[in-house]
Design a protein around this nucleic acid. Structure first.
Lengths: 229, 229
DNA sequence: CGTAGGGTTGAGGTTAATCAAGTATGGTGG
DNA sequence: CCACCATACTTGATTAACCTCAACCCTACG
C-alpha cells in the first residue's frame, strides 16, 4: 500500500533519523493529502481523528474570536507537524487550520498512531519533544503579546525567524517575507494597519528598508537585545 | 528508600489509576521537596533536571519581561504537574516558578524518568496527555489575552474555574478566590488597578457582589456565553 | 497601636484598534 | 499587452481600552 517512505517522514524533526523499521511502520499508517490555498483543514472544536505533517506549502494555525478577529498561533512550514495535541487531549482540535498556499500534507490517524506509540518508546519520546516545542512556542507567544509592544514583537519575530532560517543578520542582509503582511500582523497579535506603521517607523529610523516582501536589514544591531528564553 | 507510594502520585491525573507496578517505579524515583511561600522554585532559563508535581499548596508559573512586568501562565494546584516540557525540550525551564504558599512538591528527575518512559508506554501516554493539556491551556490563554477585553477574560476565568471546581453556578453561589487579586490580575494579563475596576463594574451592574475574597454570583446568566474551545 | 502588604480609587497619558480613504499589486480575460 | 478586478497594503484621523502614577484605605498581625 505504501511503496516508499514519504520524504517528509525522513526530514521532519518528529521522525528524523528513526530506525528504518519505525519509519516503515509510520509510513504504513500515513495518509497523504493535498490541500488548496485558503482551504480549511479543520476548525476549532472539530472532532480530531489524527494529526498532520506538512510536506510542502504552509499552514496557518489560528484562533478566532466570536466577532471574527483572528490570532495566528503559528505558521507551519514543511517538515513541521501540527494538531498532535488533539490526539491526546479532548479529541477535538483546539484551533483552526488553513492552507496558506497549495500544500501537501500527511495525515496520521490517531488510533493507529497511538497503537504504534504503545509499542514504540522512541517515537513516543519524539512526540513529547514535539509537544514540548509547541508548548514553548505558545508560552513565548503569551509573553510576547502580553508583555511587549508591537515594535518589540516585530523585531523579535524577525530576529527569531532569521535564526530559524540559519541566517545570521548582518548589515545589508535581505530578509524575504514568506507570508502575507496581514498574516504576519495577526501572528504578532496586531492588525495590518499597525503592522504597516511599525514597519514604516523602523524604516524611518534607518534600521531597515522595505520593498514589497523584501526587508533589507540596514543596521543589524537593533535585532536581538534579549528575546524570551 | 521509599516505603510508600506518595499520595500525590495516586491522585495526580498524570499518574492516577496506573497499575501498582508503575506507581512503585515512579515512587522509587520521586523526590519529595517542600517549598516556603514566595520562594523561587526555578527561574526561566535555569537548567532543568526534571519536573514537578504539587502535593500541597500552590505554585505560580509566570513569565517576566525585562522591566519586571509579570504574566502568570498558570496557577498549579495539588495533583497537577509542571515543567514537564523542560524534560524533553531544550533542557531549560521556559518560565519562572514560585510557591504561592508553603507547598509540598514531588520532583521527578529527568534522566530516571525518561528511562522509565522508555519501557513504559502507559506512562508515556499520560505524559503526552499532560503536555497536551498544557498546550491547550496556553493556546486558550493566547486567544483570551489577544482577542478579548479584560472583562470578558475575567468572566471566562470565573466560569472556567467554577467548572474545574465542580461547581455549577446558580444565582447566589459564592465563589472564593484561592489566590490574591494581584496574582489573578497577572494571570488575566492585566494590572491590579484594572482588575479591581472590572470587578467593581460587574458589581455595579448587579452581576456579582464582592466582599474580600468572596464573590457572590447574583445573576449566573452572565457566565458562560461561549468560551474558547 | 502602628506598620506593611494588599487592595482600591482617581486623574491623566499612551498604545494600538477602528474607521475611512486611498494606492499598489497581481492575476485574468479581452 | 493592456484594462480590469479583487486583494493586499498603506495612510490619516479619531477613539477607546487600559496602563501609569499617585494617593488613599483597610485589614491583619506583631
Amino acid at each position: 500500500m505504501t511503496p516508499t517512505v514519504p520524504e517528509v517522514l525522513l526530514k521532519a524533526p518528529l521522525f528524523a533519523s528513526l530506525p528504518p523499521d519505525d519509519l516503515r511502520r509510520l509510513a504504513d499508517i500515513a495518509i497523504p493529502r493535498r490541500c488548496e490555498k485558503k482551504k480549511t483543514i479543520f476548525r476549532e472544536g472539530d472532532r480530531a481523528e489524527g494529526f498532520f505533517l506538512v510536506s510542502a506549502g504552509s499552514v496557518k494555525i489560528f484562533k478566532l474570536s466570536e466577532d471574527g478577529k483572528e490570532q495566528v498561533l503559528h505558521i507551519v512550514l514543511p517538515g513541521q507537524s501540527f494538531a498532535e495535541a488533539a490526539v491526546f487531549e479532548g479529541g477535538t482540535f483546539p484551533a483552526h487550520a488553513e492552507a496558506l498556499e497549495d500544500s501537501e500534507l500527511v495525515f496520521m490517524p490517531k488510533r493507529q498512531f497511538i497503537e504504534l506509540l504503545e509499542r514504540n518508546p522512541r517515537i513516543a519520546l519524539r512526540m513529547m519533544a514535539s509537544l514540548s516545542m509547541w508548548l514553548k512556542r505558545m508560552t513565548d507567544l503569551v509573553e510576547s503579546i502580553s508583555l511587549s509592544d508591537v515594535e518589540t514583537r516585530l523585531v523579535r519575530y524577525l530576529s527569531e525567524d532569521m535564526r530559524n532560517r540559519g541566517v545570521t543578520p548582518k548589515d545589508g542582509t535581505v530578509y524575504e517575507l514568506d507570508v502575507g503582511k496581514n498574516v504576519l500582523a495577526s501572528r504578532l497579535g496586531t492588525v495590518p494597519e499597525t503592522f504597516s506603521r511599525t514597519l514604516k517607523k523602523l524604516q524611518e529610523e534607518g534600521k531597515i528598508r522595505v520593498k514589497g516582501k523584501q526587508i533589507r536589514i540596514l543596521k543589524a544591531g537593533f535585532l536581538d537585545p534579549g528575546g524570551p528564553g
